[in-house]
């Protein structure tokens, strides 16, 4: 009898250990092969600047600046207060210890595309690596070259404030298995070249879907409701539906959308509010061609009913 109990206990311990091992194996941070990084040439600063604004890096990582002509001070500190807890954007300036001045290109690429820090920890997806994973590696190299030209700013942003179980970073490995993929969201076989160029900007660096698409209980994007709008993850209100079925922008022409991304003005000369006002500061710096491409893609995506509840 005692022997049976001992065997059972040993079995449980073994099972737990095996479960732990499986968990550890499944949640291991993944890295980009070194050879892929080595194959890249030196990045191009001018092209990298385009990626910087397409990626909207400054919206979370830079403080508001009196003079927009000055280079962005990427000290971080913006707080995103969500149901999962409060995320704080870190310093990504070129400061060697407080920022990412000591990072290699491989470090930046693994952060942006695998959500992994140089010391092998998972990042939280408040940093939209799920979208950046769709970027071309060469574009990340260009971005790296541009970021090298930006100033070093002193000061570390405070840590995230998260409760259990969201404070267990290792668990994000499981989340990534479900939600992290470099594949495009939509298969747009018949779309124009322009719309495909827009698809890359929207689904990749632009990370539009991160706010404009509803999420499931685990915080993953519901691809079946891509760009249908969502209850805002942060703050009050909703993020609008931007598919052709949107009641606010569904009837806009391609040039209306492009103009909105340039100036923030709608066809009725209302103007962008909330977080979108910050986004327009970035899209306003893109080329007319890039904005037209984004607009072409938004006209080509499938229409969806609103991804948020109707007004009370």
């Amino acid at each position: 009898m005692a022997g049976t109990v001992r065997k059972l206990a040993a079995g449980v311990v073994l099972l737990a250990a095996a479960g732990g091992a499986v968990f550890w194996f499944l949640t291991a941070p993944e890295r980009i092969p070194e050879a892929d990084i080595a194959a890249l040439g030196a990045g191009d600063v001018a092209r990298g600047e385009r990626m910087f604004y397409a990626g909207g890096c400054a919206s979370c990582h830079a403080a508001a600046q009196a003079d927009p002509a000055e280079p962005p001070q990427l000290a971080g500190g913006l707080r995103l207060v969500t149901d999962f807890g409060t995320f704080v954007a870190p310093n990504i300036s070129q400061h060697p210890t407080d920022g990412i001045g000591g990072w290699s290109l491989a470090d930046l690429a693994n952060a942006m595309q695998k959500g992994v820090s140089p010391d092998g920890r998972h990042y939280y997806p408040s940093f939209p690596y799920t979208s950046y994973a769709r970027m071309k590696l060469a574009d990340v190299a260009d971005l790296y070259a541009f970021m090298k030209t930006l100033p070093a700013v002193e000061g570390r942003a405070p840590d995230h404030e998260l409760g259990f179980p969201f404070n267990i970073r290792r668990g994000l490995g499981l989340w990534k298995l479900l939600n992290l993929s470099p594949e495009p969201v939509l298969a747009l076989a018949d779309a124009s070249e322009q719309a495909k160029a827009g698809q890359y900007l929207v689904e990749g660096p632009g990370h539009c879907g991160e706010c404009h698409t509803p999420r499931d209980l685990s915080g993953g994007i519901r691809k079946s409701e891509w760009l249908a709008g969502a209850v805002a993850a942060e703050g009050d209100g909703v993020v609008p539906n931007i598919t052709p079925e949107s009641s606010s922008s569904g009837q806009w022409s391609q040039s209306d959308i492009a103009e909105f991304l340039k100036s923030g003005f709608t066809p009725e000369f209302d103007s962008a509010g909330g977080a979108m006002a910050a986004v327009v500061k970035n899209t306003g710096r893109l080329s007319d061609d890039d904005r037209a491409a984004i607009a072409a893609y938004l006209k080509a995506v499938p229409g969806r009913p609103n991804g948020f509840p109707a007004k009370k």
Partner: peptide
């Protein structure tokens, strides 16, 4: 002014 004021004081609703 449109952008700066709307960024701070306006919110979309369903």
């Amino acid at each position: 002014n449109c952008a700066s004021c709307h960024e701070a004081f306006r919110v979309k609703k369903g």
